[in-house]
Amino acid sequence: MATDPRQIVALLTARDATVATAESLTGGRLAASLTSVPGASACVTGGVVAYATHVKVDVLGVPADLVAEHGVVSGECAAAMATGVRDLLGTTYAMATTGVAGPDQQEGHPAGHVWVAVAGPDGVETRLLTLTGDRSAVQEATCRHALSVLAGMLTREEPALG
């Protein structure tokens, strides 16, 4: 799947679709990768860096009981973050990242334990990633995977020809 932000921007622009980001462990890198592309303003609406749990809950609307039950390093939290930022910013699609960039564990999960989620008109997809490398490598790989999930969703939703 496409992980090049230029391809993602082109796909979104061709569909007249918009995207937002909700980022925890990537700290804005996912939005920065998209906005580095000339013309990204046609499809990138904005993003929320929700590094702290209270931002996930208070700004993105992640239910506190979901966090209490599953933690912030979970597919459930990633899905709620993606849906929350999609609703908040009124976009067609939204991507979310949450997990452990390292070097320390969080919620009993090791560095490299990451969840990405993409919310779109037809639902939410989540992916659990097990990544290796230092903090920067985990963040970069997370961004690539999030873009890949979005590209897959966009490709599957491609209108039929004829």
Rank of each mutant, 00 (worst) to 15 (best):
V149F: 06
L128W: 11
A2C: 13
A117T: 11
G152W: 05
A96Q: 04
T45E: 12
T45D: 09
T13C: 03
A117L: 10
W115R: 01
A119M: 09
A64S: 14
A42P: 00
A10R: 14
D58C: 06
S148N: 11
A79G: 10
L34P: 04
L154T: 10
A141R: 14
M95Q: 07
L11V: 00
E125V: 15
D4E: 14
L129V: 11
P110S: 13
A94F: 06
V67M: 03
S36C: 09
Q106S: 13
R86D: 08
H70S: 12
A14R: 14
G61S: 09
Y51H: 10
C43I: 10
A31Y: 00
R127F: 01
T91R: 00
L60P: 01
D4I: 03
A78H: 02
V116D: 09
D122H: 15
M1P: 12
T53Y: 00
T18E: 04
A96C: 09
H109C: 13
G152A: 10
M153N: 03
V67K: 02
L128V: 04
E69T: 14
G120D: 06
A119G: 08
G47H: 06
V124N: 02
T132S: 15
L66V: 15
G133Q: 12
L88K: 12
D58P: 01
C77K: 00
G84I: 04
A64M: 05
S36E: 15
H70M: 00
G46W: 11
T126G: 03
V19G: 02
L12Y: 09
L154K: 03
G39P: 07
T155W: 06
Q139D: 02
L30N: 00
E125Q: 14
L129I: 10
A52V: 05
G46A: 11
A94L: 05
